[in-house]
């Protein structure tokens, strides 16, 4: 029974990881501008890779490897999110204008006070 539960969990996590990766890739290809592309591609790393690693942890059972994998997960989440933030911020600061639908009035630029 426990075997079945574990396998189901692993399969589910792997599938969700694949879904996130697929979504991330499609988003990267289909989204109109940098800001929009950042959104799916960071999810790709955090959720996709992390669920696959979680699946691996469940599959391997508890050992020293799990600690390493957990560390990898942690740093993956950290670095991917921070990278997305840094890219978006520097694009915004260097004046990349967000995309807007043709014919629709764009949002006025956000006021950000510079420290």
């Amino acid at each position: 029974m426990a075997e079945v539960v574990r396998n189901v969990l692993v399969a589910a996590l792997c599938c969700s990881g694949i879904v996130f990766f697929l979504g991330g890739t499609v988003g990267l290809l289909r989204c109109p501008d940098l800001y929009a592309r950042l959104h799916p591609s960071t999810k790709c790393d955090t959720l996709g890779a992390c669920s696959v690693i979680l699946a691996l942890i469940i599959l391997s059972g508890f050992s020293m490897v799990v600690l390493k994998l957990l560390a990898v997960t942690f740093f993956l989440m950290l670095s991917s999110a921070v990278c997305g933030h840094a890219i978006g911020r520097s694009a915004f600061k260097s004046g990349v204008v967000p995309w807007h639908k043709p014919g629709v009035e764009p949002l006025p630029p956000m006021e950000v006070e510079e420290p």
Binding site: L78, V82, H85, A86, S90, K93, P115
Partner: peptide
């Protein structure tokens, strides 16, 4: 001119 983001420096 732009200061590096606090999030990035902290991480």
């Amino acid at each position: 001119r732009v200061r590096t983001s606090l999030i990035v420096t902290t991480v």
